[in-house]
């Protein structure tokens, strides 16, 4: 089983490279968009770098399911619908949606992704690979 601290350190290096950050800026609770300044194209960069760093294959929108937010069934008037919330919950088992559920604003989706979220995602990918 992958060591969580090892995974965190590799994820931190990926984020430092992709977002031009210093080591002390990448803390577990830091949000990729609000705290670390990630933009949409950075997510593609981060996915490519994670694949290389961990030797894993990540399908499009697997880590950051942006296609859900482009679907009219799942978003109404800037808020994620009940159906959309179910989809997000299924697609993002690695994310904590507790705070998000209170407001459901599309703008707040970016804040679901913290450094810790990425670490949990990678851990689950590595475990499914060795299972």
């Amino acid at each position: 089983m992958a060591d969580q601290q090892d995974v965190f350190e590799k994820v931190r290096n990926v984020l430092m490279d992709a977002l031009s950050l210093d080591e002390d800026e990448v803390e577990s609770e830091a949000r990729l968009v609000s705290d670390l300044g990630a933009e949409s194209i950075d997510f593609l960069d981060i996915v490519f770098r994670l694949e290389k760093a961990f030797g894993i294959k990540i399908e499009q929108s697997e880590l950051f399911p942006d296609n859900v937010l482009n679907d009219a069934r799942y978003v109404n008037d800037g808020k994620v619908t009940d159906e959309g919330l179910e989809v997000l919950r299924a697609r993002l088992p690695h994310a904590d949606l507790t705070e998000f559920e209170k407001d459901r604003s599309v703008e707040a989706v970016g804040d679901l992704f913290t450094v810790d979220t990425v670490v949990r995602f990678v851990m689950s990918k590595l475990e499914s690979q060795t299972a």
């Binding site: 593609l44 960069d45 490519f48 694949e51 290389k52 499009q60």
Partner: peptide
């Protein structure tokens, strides 16, 4: 090419 898929490439 380092990585190439449907979304783009590095």
């Amino acid at each position: 090419v380092v990585r190439l898929d449907g979304a783009g490439a590095s």
